[in-house]
Design a protein around this nucleic acid. Structure first.
Length: 266
DNA sequence: GCTAAATGTTGAT
DNA sequence: TCAACCTTTAGCT
């Protein structure tokens, strides 16, 4: 579930797996053969994430840039690595562990300068130290576009995806259709603070849970699955706060979910 | 066990 | 606006 929290979690994990190790790199699929050749033998110094973009810093100023897109996925394990099967874009092998990457939308070796170009095009990331919500506000304040679409724009805020978008709007009673310029500053600042908390929890657990305990159904009997979302993918089901059926509409080829009572139209 | 839909973005039409 | 990327998972049966 690659929203920003997953990518930060992966950055942390890859650092744990391979920090300080010289890695073998290969692209069994062939689509990253040149890049893998460049990386082969380099040592992983550190990892970094900005929004949904992942970076590995290797010796020799080599940077691996990965964007998982919708389908991309990493798998890992202890050596020996299994025989490569399917479309395996990149396999990294360390002293004790292997790491496979499949289906990313971006997997490339960049220079530090090229990495900067990537991150310069991104808005502040609630998961990064020192990110400034005022910069986001400045973008919102001069846009007639809906806050629902602006939150999905990585140049405005980095790391928020369809789930966090729907849930943060609900939690603050904001209609997705409100023009960005009409969002109150104080509302945005509490949304940002809330996003940081929720996304940090996502990094810790690997799951997106946005409901407050009092809005979840009583745990009937044994450990049942937690009611993790207020509106995301709950079309037609009663709102956890007011019982109004959750609404859904397709917006820019993405599903948008909201409660028309808790988040009234502007 | 199978099918449909999905967390995202780019590039072509 | 749509296809591509080509894996995972939720929801059926």
């Amino acid at each position: 579930m690659p929203e920003g929290h997953s990518i930060h979690r992966l950055a942390r994990r890859h650092h744990q797996l391979f920090r300080g190790e010289a890695l073998r790199a290969a692209s069994p699929q062939g689509r990253f053969a040149e890049g893998a050749e460049l990386l082969d033998g380099a040592t992983l110094e550190r990892t970094d994430a900005w929004g949904k973009h992942l970076f590995h810093h290797y010796t020799g100023d080599l940077r691996l840039h990965v964007h998982l897109g919708l389908y991309g996925t990493f798998t890992e394990g202890d050596l020996p690595a299994p025989h490569p099967r399917g479309a395996l874009r990149l396999r990294l092998v360390g002293k004790e562990r292997w790491l496979d990457l499949r289906g990313p939308i971006a997997c490339e070796v960049l220079t530090p300068e090229q990495c900067r170009q990537v991150t310069d095009a991104l808005g502040p990331d609630p998961l990064r130290e020192g990110s400034d919500p005022a910069l986001v506000l400045a973008r919102l304040a001069r846009s007639r576009a809906s806050v629902g679409s602006l939150l999905m724009n990585q140049q405005v805020v980095a790391g928020v995806g369809n789930v966090y978008r729907a849930e943060i709007l609900f939690r603050h009673g904001v209609s997705p259709f409100l023009p960005g310029r009409d969002l109150e500053e104080s509302t945005w600042l509490s949304m940002w603070a809330d996003l940081s908390v929720l996304m940090r929890a996502g990094v810790r657990t690997g799951r997106i849970v946005t409901t407050d305990p009092e809005d979840r159904a009583r745990p009937a009997g044994r450990a049942r699955r937690v009611d993790a979302h207020y509106v995301y993918r709950r079309t037609g089901q009663p709102c956890r706060r007011c019982d109004t059926p959750v609404s859904q509409v397709e917006m820019a080829a993405r599903n948008l979910f909201w409660c028309s009572w808790c988040q009234p139209d502007p």
